[in-house]
Nucleic acid binder design. Structure first.
Length: 739
DNA sequence: AAAAAAT
């Protein structure tokens, strides 16, 4: 304790220099005046050559020199005197360290054109963040490319260095790693606490100390037990049983849990009207839709969405199977082209340019009902073409709704596509944008980790389709820069994931804001490779008579993926993973945590295997760059968290290694779906320890995947075989005569 | 545990 106080004292001492700094700021404010003088001296220089200033920066024409030179000269002095301290706090970081010492010589030459207007903008305009963002991010780009070149420009160097330090690397590494360590500590503590409580605090002491030893031995048993044995012993026993109560309580708890932890009750309360309503409606819709459903798809029972308390993962399987059981047959859609499904010529051409000459089954199933304006749930296996399945009819619908009206400047967006990761949002936009542009519609990406300014600028000009992630979209809504009241169609890609804890509430908030200015409710489209009742929370609140589509016979295991499970010793994991990725083809390694992803990537690099990481601890520039390195083929190994599990499409990944086995079957399916795309073959290798075999077996059952379990050690040929480093029999027979 | 805003 006293140490803590001393620490506090030391902290207080450590504050002192800060106060000293702050007190230094006040004289620093004076110094700032000096800077202002210097600045104005600079302005005087401009006055000496005002034309130069104007001519040098025509973009800022009339901004300062003309206005301030004559009129606001002294008021500026005083204004900077007054506001100077505040401004100085912003300026200081740039000016003191960077300018004060180094830049004076450099300033007039180098920084006049570039720095001053920016800094002045930043000071004057309320939106410093914009200006800060622009240079920061632009600087972020520059230093990455040109760091080596820029060192001579020390003033520039300071900013990016600080920004680097401030923004992600230092903060994230600095804060997160300790945060993790703290998390670890907590767990340790909690583990520590549990035994302490159990051992020390309550039960053992009371039971041992009070009941048996004290009463029974001393008082009861010897004396009373002879007399009253039956009665007292009976009394004692029930008393004990009451004390224990465990069976009774567990019994009490069990029915409670079953009843529902009130979930059935709630669902009854909540759902009965819904079910009745929905029973009525579907009855009608059944009549009308039955022929189509017979052909294409069938709506699941409403109970699928409702009767699912989140007790165990297994509940999802029920829905999973029911959905699969009633699905469109691929043959029934064979032979239809995009045009027959109702898409216009321009869109059909754009699709052809994207390599989609004729519709995939999931596309053939969903395009028509989407064009009819229905709410649609669709399940298609990974890589089955879901983006076009919603993207193309979405564009067609917007086109029809626009009905030849001209594009207005600043129009509100009319369609919103939501994705769980930035990379996926980017990828969706890469597909949807050319389709939209083919008919004169515009898309923009709204996601975090990048400057707002460009996104906001696009919104101001007016866009039709927004593709983005929930956080930045909500951010811009709250800033009043994004208005969703005209959204006619909203798409949730990876909808089941978007319904999970942490995503659900933002999704609900966004969906409540969508289309509020329209006469008709916004059309909702929910897509995922693992669509299940997890989306019930969203379906119940937001969807009207949704139709569910799925392609029959297209379960995940029907593809070209070879699933293998290696049972290993934990201490062999690092070496085994390394040997697996030491190969020619593109390999994607999944880990459970960001830290382990980073660790493995570094380990591979140390071993001479080019590898990059992809996880949420990286800034967006690195995330984008590292993913691109894999798609470009500049690197063959990507180590990623589940940020890369869903949706990310890289053509030729032929090996997926799960260094950490997933906990959920859906995660397995999505991770595995990164390979075997576009009809190619691929292998998924999952490393587990012996004690995890049963969990793995159960998960594979849920995923409906068959995979052999094989014991593996670092030296085994099996590893080389899985890595593809052993020649096949054909190659052996072919290679032998060759040499 | 990860992801999703920014700072």
């Amino acid at each position: 304790m006293p140490k803590n106080h001393k620490q506090g004292g030391s902290r207080a001492q450590s504050f002192d220099p800060r106060y000293a700094k702050k007190s230094g700021y006040r004289p620093g404010g004076q110094r700032d005046f000096g800077r202002d003088e210097r600045r104005d001296g600079g302005r005087d220089d401009r006055r000496d050559a005002p034309q130069k200033a104007g001519s040098r920066s025509p973009n800022h024409r009339g901004y300062r020199p003309a206005e301030t030179d004559g009129a606001a000269k002294k008021s500026r002095w005083t204004a900077s005197d007054r506001a100077g301290r505040d401004e100085a706090r912003g300026i200081r970081t740039h000016s003191r360290d960077a300018r004060g010492g180094r830049d004076f010589g450099d300033r007039p030459a180098r920084s006049f054109d570039n720095d001053r207007p920016r800094r002045e903008y930043g000071n004057d305009r309320p939106t410093r963040s914009y200006d800060n963002d622009r240079p920061k991010r632009s600087y972020d780009d520059r230093p990455q490319r040109s760091y080596g070149n820029d060192r001579s420009q020390r003033s520039y160097d300071d900013r990016p260095r600080r920004e680097y330090g401030n923004d992600r690397p230092q903060r994230s590494y600095g804060t997160d790693r300790p945060a993790r360590s703290y998390d670890n500590d907590r767990q340790k503590r909690s583990y520590d606490d549990r035994p302490r409580r159990e051992y020390g605090s309550d039960r053992p002491r009371r039971e041992y100390g009070n009941d048996r030893p004290a009463r029974s031995y001393d008082n009861d048993r010897p004396k009373r037990s002879y007399d009253d044995r039956p009665a007292r012993s009976y009394n004692d026993r029930p008393a004990r049983s009451y004390d224990n109560d465990r069976p009774k309580r567990s019994y009490d708890d069990r029915p409670r849990r079953e009843y529902g932890s009130d979930r059935p009750q709630r669902s009854y309360d909540n759902d009965r009207p819904r079910r009745e309503y929905s029973n009525d409606r579907p009855a009608r819709s059944y009549d009308s839709d039955r022929p189509k459903r017979d052909d294409r798809a069938v709506r699941p029972n409403r109970s699928d969405w409702n009767a699912t308390p989140k007790q165990h993962d297994e509940h999802v399987d029920v829905v999973h199977e029911r959905l699969q059981a009633e699905a469109i047959a691929a043959e029934t859609v064979a032979g239809q082209g995009f045009a027959e499904l109702g898409l216009g010529d321009n869109i059909v051409r754009a699709l052809a340019d994207l390599g989609a000459a004729s519709p995939f089954p999931i596309q053939a199933a969903t395009i028509s009902p989407i064009l009819e304006g229905k709410d649609v749930l669709a399940r298609g296996r990974t890589g089955s073409g879901k983006t076009i399945a919603f993207g193309a009819p979405l564009v067609e619908s917007l086109l029809r709704a626009r009905a030849g009206k001209p594009r207005e400047f600043g129009r509100k967006p009319t369609a919103l596509i939501l994705a769980p990761t930035r990379e996926l949002a980017l990828q969706i936009d890469r597909t949807v944008q050319p389709i939209a542009r083919s008919v004169g519609l515009f898309t923009t990406q709204i996601y975090g980790g990048v400057p707002q300014a460009r996104q906001v600028g696009a919104l101001k000009k007016g866009v039709d389709i927004i593709v983005g992630t929930p956080g930045r979209i909500e951010d811009l809504i709250n800033q009043g820069k994004l208005d969703l009241s005209d959204i006619r169609i909203v798409v949730l890609d990876e909808a089941d994931h978007m319904s999970e804890l942490g995503f659900l509430e933002p999704m609900q908030r966004i969906l409540r804001l969508v289309g509020t200015g329209l006469d008709t409710p916004t059309q909702k489209l929910l897509f995922s490779a693992t669509l299940d009742r997890e989306v019930a929370a969203l379906v119940d609140e937001f969807l009207v008579e949704p139709s569910v589509y799925e392609v029959a016979g297209e379960d995940q295991d029907s593809g070209t993926i070879d699933h293998r499970v290696l049972v290993i010793d934990h201490r062999d994991k690092a070496e085994l993973v390394e040997r697996l990725v030491d190969r020619d083809g593109k390999t994607l390694v999944f880990t459970r945590t960001r830290a382990y992803a980073e660790m493995l990537a570094e380990q591979f690099e140390d071993a001479g295997i080019n590898a990059v990481a992809l996880h949420g601890d990286l800034n967006q520039a690195k995330r984008t760059r590292n993913l691109k390195r894999l798609t470009d083929g500049r690197v063959n190994v990507l180590v990623a968290t589940d940020v890369a599990a869903r949706g990310i499409h890289v053509d030729d990944i032929d090996l997926v290694v799960q260094a950490d086995a997933p906990d959920e079957y859906k995660t397995y399916l999505h991770r595995a779906g990164r390979t075997g795309r576009a009809g190619r073959s691929g292998t998924v290798v999952t490393l587990i320890t012996r004690q995890r075999r049963r969990r793995m077996t159960e998960m594979l059952e849920r995923a409906e995947i068959e995979a052999p379990f094989e014991d593996a050690r670092p030296g085994d040929d099996l590893i080389e075989e899985l890595a593809g480093n052993l020649p096949t029999d054909a190659e052996l027979t072919g290679a032998a005569p060759a040499e």
